[in-house]
Amino acid sequence: MLESYSVSVEGFEGPLDLLLHLINRYEIDIYNIPVAKISEQYMQYIHTMQQLELNIASEYLVMAATLLAIKSAMLLPNQEIEADDNYEGEDPRDELIARLIEYRKYKEAAQTLQELEGEEKESFTRPPQKWTEDKKLVSKPKKGAVTVYDMLSAMQNVFDRKKWNRPMTTTIEKIEIPIKQRMEEVLSQIETAKQGIPFDQLFPYPSKSHMVITFMAVLELMKDKLIFCEQERTFDSLIIHRWRG
């Protein structure tokens, strides 16, 4: 049995944050949310969290129930609307939309303040310096550009791929590795990849226990600022890099 392992990740900011991530990811109009689609995607994330044996906060499950209730309400025929074409009834999504818009305002404001704080910390003065032509500006990958929800989506793809690729007649032995040992192995693997390593290459075994421990190891390494993850475009593969100052 896989030992219970809890990890605190700052990226898990609550169900509204997950919904906003899905709205941005699928370029959905926040004022006209397709509840059926967003519910399906939301439940896939919840399922992945359960597969990873993460402690899911009750608020995520409450939101899941809310989405299903809204979906059911939108499927029910409205007799008043049928009787009067000019009737403007209340949309079951209105309260959720209002909460999301309010949350997005606070999130954007917090992001702006965080960026200003970062700029202030990086500001410093130095004596005048002569510029030489051989000096080049080297662009570095943007660290921390990927959210924990992007990683959960990538992890779901790993689960699905391992499930379909696993030979039906082969018995896979359970692999149990201490989290610290797996962190060292992942870090060593990334060290040798100068251009970074695709996220799914960190999961060589179709063993749930090994995949869960590997995912936890990656989260811990990111939290300790030893590695970072990037994604060039939405839905592209995630690339893991060594954090080098």
Results as ranks from 00 to 15, higher is better:
128 P>I: 06
128 P>S: 08
129 Q>M: 10
129 Q>L: 12
129 Q>R: 12
130 K>P: 01
130 K>N: 11
131 W>I: 15
132 T>Q: 10
132 T>D: 15
133 E>C: 02
133 E>P: 12
133 E>Y: 08
134 D>A: 12
135 K>R: 12
135 K>G: 13
135 K>W: 07
135 K>M: 07
135 K>C: 08
136 K>M: 13
137 L>N: 03
137 L>S: 09
138 V>F: 03
138 V>L: 12
140 K>W: 00
140 K>E: 03
140 K>S: 13
141 P>M: 06
141 P>W: 00
141 P>K: 09
142 K>P: 06
142 K>C: 03
142 K>W: 01
143 K>P: 08
143 K>Q: 12
144 G>D: 11
144 G>A: 04
144 G>Y: 04
144 G>E: 11
145 A>T: 10
146 V>P: 02
147 T>E: 06
147 T>W: 04
148 V>G: 03
148 V>K: 00
149 Y>L: 03
149 Y>C: 00
150 D>N: 11
150 D>A: 13
150 D>W: 13
150 D>G: 02
150 D>P: 03
151 M>G: 08
151 M>H: 08
152 L>R: 10
152 L>A: 01
153 S>E: 15
154 A>N: 15
155 M>F: 08
156 Q>P: 05
156 Q>Y: 15
157 N>P: 14
157 N>D: 14
157 N>R: 15
157 N>M: 15
158 V>F: 12
158 V>D: 15
158 V>G: 09
158 V>I: 14
160 D>V: 08
161 R>D: 13
164 W>Q: 10
164 W>K: 11
164 W>R: 09
164 W>N: 06
164 W>D: 11
165 N>P: 04
166 R>D: 02
167 P>H: 04
167 P>D: 01
168 M>A: 09
168 M>I: 04
168 M>T: 06
168 M>H: 11
169 T>A: 07
169 T>M: 13
169 T>P: 05
169 T>S: 13
170 T>G: 11
170 T>H: 05
171 T>P: 02
171 T>R: 10
172 I>R: 02
